[in-house]
């Protein structure tokens, strides 16, 4: 109990004094996860809508694989990305290991299946609603996809937020490919792991509360933005 209280106090002081290190790693956390999220959405949303409107041979398999990959263990993703990016690996020449870019790559791999699966779920429902009309209007495949993506944008936002949640709280993969290097690749989650290991529970808890506050703030902000945009039942 004393530790929790200490953590709260620590978090409070870290924030009100604009602690420079805290500021830096928080921004890096946001930078890594938001960049990964944007890239993941650019891949996952078109993929999800394609899976909703197009009937092809391997469709069910792809959907099944995506669903299974939602539970992909981040540590394993980190390990694989590590091997690929390490100096002797196929992408070693780019020298990306232990950089924020490597962390972004790992998080994209972790987030894509999650966002794609959740998005596909709601797009498929919408497609059963719209199917007859869009077939009758004879619209192109791309127009179908765009219509679905636009009209399901609220559900897609939820999918993106789930992806953000998975990314911002993730530690296994970015620890391996980033290395938790001070002033280079340290983010909130890896810092928490480090401080816990060192036995500085108050600092670790303080960072933890900052992380929670950050996740909640981003969620509220995005929901606030989307609500002011359109008022309605969807």
């Amino acid at each position: 109990m004393a530790d929790l209280w200490g953590g709260l106090v620590q978090a409070f002081w870290l924030i009100v004094t604009f602690d420079a290190d805290l500021f830096e790693i928080t921004l890096r956390s946001l930078y890594v996860t938001l960049t990964a999220l944007v890239i993941a959405c650019l891949i996952a949303l078109p993929l999800a809508s394609l899976l909703a409107v197009k009937r092809f041979r391997w469709r069910r398999t792809v959907i099944g694989v995506l669903n299974a990959l939602m539970g992909l263990p981040p540590v394993v993703v980190g390990l694989i990305v590590y091997v690929l990016l390490s100096r002797s690996g196929p992408f070693g020449v780019f020298g990306l290991l232990f950089t924020p870019t490597a962390m972004i790559i790992a998080q994209v791999i972790i987030i894509v299946p999650l966002v794609a699966s959740i998005a596909h779920q709601s797009l498929r429902e919408l497609w059963t609603d719209y199917h007859d009309l869009l077939i009758s209007l004879n619209v192109t495949q791309a127009q179908k996809m765009r219509t679905l993506l636009w009209d399901a944008r609220r559900a897609l936002l939820t999918a993106a937020l789930a992806g953000f949640g998975r990314g911002i709280g993730e530690v296994g993969a970015i620890m391996i490919v980033g290395g938790n290097i001070d002033h280079a690749t340290r983010v909130l989650t890896t810092a928490i792991a480090l401080e816990t290991g060192r036995g500085d529970f108050a600092l670790a808890l303080g960072l933890g509360f900052v992380l929670i506050a950050l996740a909640v703030a981003v969620n509220l902000m995005i929901h606030g933005l989307s609500r002011t945009e359109v008022e309605g039942r969807w």
Partner: peptide, 13 residues
């Protein structure tokens, strides 16, 4: 041609 369905299909717009 155009088609009006037995159950109206409304876009969420």
């Amino acid at each position: 041609q155009a088609f009006v369905f037995q159950r109206p299909i409304l876009l969420r717009r």
